[in-house]
Design a protein around this nucleic acid. Structure first.
Length: 561
RNA sequence: UGUCCGAUAGUAUAAUGGCAGUACAGAAGUUUUUGGUACUUUUAGUCAUAGUUCGAAUCUAUGUCGGAUAACCA
């Protein structure tokens, strides 16, 4: 229970307020039991993560429970692969449904019985109209619908027909069970909604046992009721379904949870509908559901996001009813914040430029001590090699330094991180005039930690010793879309805004030798560059790193001015 | 066009009739052997009009704008 301290009263979102009100009145006996009800027809995305964190978060906060329930009432769209990925993603996010994993299909018998009960109470009937006929007699928001000519069949006839539907005597689309509510209702969902339809498809769990399947509106509320859910949290578009949710349970005379709707998450520069994400996968615009550019949970995981960072993100964005578009920079902030605390700082050079330290003895090798993570006192130190030949980042050298530039240039000095100060004496170029190497001199008395040189340099750059460097492939990601809201244009489809440079593969990157045995999923900060993790495709012979996110770059920002 | 929902800095989210606050983003600075981190400072907001009230972001009315909704999808 939340503490009621008047001095520092914590702020509650509107759902928590409803719950606390219920706890006050005792509506649900101070119980909180939520559920996360995905349809297994796609992979979970960051928007689902918001819902997962909400549902599990509410039950944690109020000492309640959360069920995982697959809403699998449409056999044509649902697959076992998705069921598995969903479980995996929820677990990875750090939540447990314990022994309460359910399927709406578990309740098909019960739901069928309830349908029969509705028929017996003259609250449902079998309609022989086609879906087109139903649509055309449904009326419109200002005009009442027309009652079906089959609306007044006898209870006995309805019961018989429904059983024969179940037995497979009729073809798909020839009959449907409809609730008998009000064809003139101002709420279109109350104009005799279809409750059951015939589908002669094999279900991923019940096989061919059924050829009739309940619709969402009928199955969902009954499933919630069966599971004794207290607060049935869903997204805004179900708001107009709530009267039907309540009608079904009340008409059946069974336990009724409270449906509460909140605004789904939208992120700029991305799309969030399963249909569109599926399109990106099917049309090979991305490689897979877990492509690191995808806003799917599996994509974010492969990209290097941590569960903590996603949970913190979910907390930060809050819960409300107004439509919202969250800035992706908030997601990026959340992952940087966490990775900053936990990752080891390593040396990696993406675009190597050879540096020869001409006054450093040829035979000499040193092991330099470097701290693993300045943000973590207990992280200790390790050593990195140093010798006459090293690689630095091409971006860290410019022949002539512009104003405000404090990296290396001809005649200029920089500190090599954890090593010496060097001065660039000359540039080696090939016939095309391209820079192939730098000749530098080091200051022996400027060694990191025992610097007596008295030299003051502004720039500190990273490097990798040349002989012991290991090669790696690094994948740099940028946002998938160039437009802030790619799916909000009437005249253009979202695919017209695909960023052609969303993936840049950089080969022959040079990394410090300690990374030789880096394992899939391990996360590092490449000093000064960003956070990287070992990709699932990485092998011993071909190390592959994904860039999760860059570091904030004040210099890049300065240059844009 | 009906019904339902919503509107607080650029983006989100608090304040539940009593000082409009927080985070991200933006700007400036301090520290720094990461142009990172941390820290400091700063810019910027109650959709409009009227009403109720000693007092309104909050209550009421009207308007404006935005969203959802008329699948045998969920």
């Amino acid at each position: 229970m939340s503490t009621e301290n008047k001095e520092t009263k914590e702020s509650l979102n509107f759902i928590e307020q409803i719950i606390e009100e219920h706890n006050k009145t005792g509506k649900y006996n101070q119980k909180v039991h939520t559920r996360f009800p995905p349809e297994p027809n796609g992979y979970l995305h960051i928007g689902h993560a918001k819902s997962i964190c909400l549902n599990f978060g509410l039950s944690q906060k109020y000492n309640g429970l959360t069920n995982l329930r697959f809403d699998d009432t449409n056999p044509e769209k649902e697959e076992v692969e998705y069921v598995k990925s969903i479980q995996n993603d929820v677990k990875w996010l750090g939540f447990s449904w314990e022994d309460r994993m359910f399927f709406a299909s578990d309740y098909f018998d019960k739901i069928y019985e309830y349908a029969c009960q509705l028929i017996k109470n003259d609250k449902a009937y079998i309609d022989d109209q086609t879906s087109e006929q139903m649509a055309s007699t449904k009326g419109n928001p200002t005009k009442a619908g027309i009652e079906s000519p089959y609306r007044n069949r006898t209870i006995a006839e309805n019961l018989d027909l429904f059983e024969r539907m179940k037995n497979g005597e009729f073809e798909e689309g020839t009959k449907a069970l409809r609730a008998k509510i009000d064809m003139a209702s101002s709420n279109m969902h109350m104009r005799d909604p279809v409750l059951y339809r015939i589908k002669k498809a094999t279900h991923h769990r019940t096989g061919d046992k059924w050829c009739i399947y309940p619709m969402y509106d009928f199955a969902h509320c009954i499933s919630d009721s069966i599971e004794n859910i207290t607060h049935s949290v869903c997204t805004l578009e179900f708001e107009v379904h709530r009267p039907l949710y309540d009608w079904i349970l009340e008409t059946l005379g069974i336990y009724r949870p409270q449906q509460i709707e909140f605004a789904r998450l939208n992120l700029n520069y991305t799309v969030m509908s399963k249909r569109k994400l599926l399109q990106l996968v099917n049309e090979k615009i991305v490689e897979s559901w877990d492509d690191p550019r995808m806003p799917t949970i599996s994509g974010l995981r492969r990209r290097g996001y941590t569960p903590e960072s996603i949970r913190n993100f979910a907390t930060r964005i809050g819960i409300a009813k107004r439509d919202n578009v969250i800035d992706v920079s908030l997601l990026e902030f959340s992952v940087r914040e966490h990775l900053n605390k936990i990752t080891t700082r390593v040396m990696g050079v993406l675009n190597p430029l050879k540096v020869i330290i001409t006054n450093y003895p040829e035979a000499k090798n040193e092991d330099l001590v470097i701290e693993n993570n300045p943000e973590d006192e207990n992280s200790g130190t390790r050593t990195i090699p140093f010798s006459r030949e090293i690689f630095i980042e091409q971006d860290d050298f410019l022949e002539v330094a512009p104003k405000g530039y404090f990296r290396l240039s001809v005649g200029g000095m920089v500190r090599l991180k954890a090593a010496y100060i060097i001065e660039c004496k000359s540039v080696v170029k090939n016939e095309q005039g391209e820079i192939t190497a730098l000749h530098c001199e080091y200051f022996e008395n400027s060694k990191s930690g025992q610097d007596t040189s008295g030299l003051k340099v502004k720039g500190v750059i990273h490097f990798v010793e040349a002989n012991q460097a290991i090669d790696a492939e690094v994948r740099l990601y940028d946002r998938l879309f160039t437009d802030e809201s790619p799916d909000a244009h009437e005249d253009k489809g979202f695919k017209e805004f695909i960023n052609p440079n969303s993936l840049e593969i950089v080969k022959n990157c040079k990394l410090e030798p300690s990374l030789k045995n880096a394992k899939v999923g391990e996360k590092y900060q490449f000093q000064r560059l960003g956070y990287f993790c070992v990709d699932t495709e990485s092998t011993e012979n071909n190390l592959v790193f994904n860039r999760t996110v860059t570091l904030k770059d004040a210099w890049a920002k300065e240059q844009k001015k």
